[in-house]
């Protein structure tokens, strides 16, 4: 038991490349990779899917797939997490295909997690705005969603995002700009649609 703890401690200090090589034959090394990447992968899947149950299911599948394929993993200068993100992306794409539709599901814990001491009306309004924004994010193409999640959840730099997504830093900057413009246009469209509905309702 003491040996196991010592090994775990040693693995915590190793860099990712070494761990990946060790993980090909040693499950404890894979366990360390799992600890390091679980939060990132879970967040990516959770925000792309929108509910805890399916996010847990896909996260489990992702790590089982990674475990069974890590023996074939070759370091080609691309970060290991890019490989994990690719598996996650495929799983999410299959999930959407299986659903038969890209239905927008409210992030079920989002309301529960939102803590605000302001007036209930203001809180409800803020939550509605956030839900609208999340729905607009989830209508974006997969690469743009990934960019936003890497930027805002993982808080990575453009260079790091570029490494994961296989693009240059300049291309990421440009994609970010276009993504924000697409979001603005989508939100304006939604606002106009809501205003139009209200106008129709008021005219009876």
């Amino acid at each position: 038991m003491r040996k196991l703890f010592a090994r775990r401690k040693r693995y915590q200090q190793l860099d990712v490349q070494t761990l990946v090589e060790l993980a090909k034959n040693d499950k404890e090394a894979f366990g360390e990779l799992y600890e390091r990447y679980l939060p990132k992968m879970y967040n990516y899947i959770y925000y792309r899917i929108g509910n805890v149950h399916d996010a847990e299911d896909l996260t489990a599948r992702l790590f089982f797939r990674a475990l069974s394929h890590i023996g074939k993993y070759e370091d080609r200068g691309v970060p290991f997490q890019a490989w994990l993100y690719r598996i996650a992306h495929n799983l999410v794409a299959n999930w959407h295909r299986d659903q038969g539709r890209r239905k927008i599901i409210a992030l079920d814990d989002y309301v529960a997690n939102a803590q605000n001491s302001e007036a209930p009306d203001r809180l409800a309004e803020e939550l509605e705005e956030k839900q609208q924004l999340l729905q607009a994010v989830r209508r974006l193409p997969a690469d743009r969603q990934q960019l936003l999640l890497l930027k805002f959840i993982d808080q990575l730099s453009n260079a790091e995002i570029g490494e994961i997504m296989g693009r240059t830093e300049g291309a990421i900057k440009s994609l970010y700009h276009r993504t924000l413009m697409a979001l603005r246009d989508d939100l304006q469209l939604q606002d106009n649609a809501i205003d139009g509905d209200r106008l129709v309702d008021s005219r009876g």
Binding site: G31, Y42, N43, T59, A60, L67, N113, L133, L148
Partner: peptide
Amino acid sequence: IVTELDATLIAVEPSAEFAGQLRSQLL
């Protein structure tokens, strides 16, 4: 929109129960 995204896209934690169970199953 950047300000709104910063307030909306907040990191979530997988439950400790799920994380522990999955680790046990994997290893």
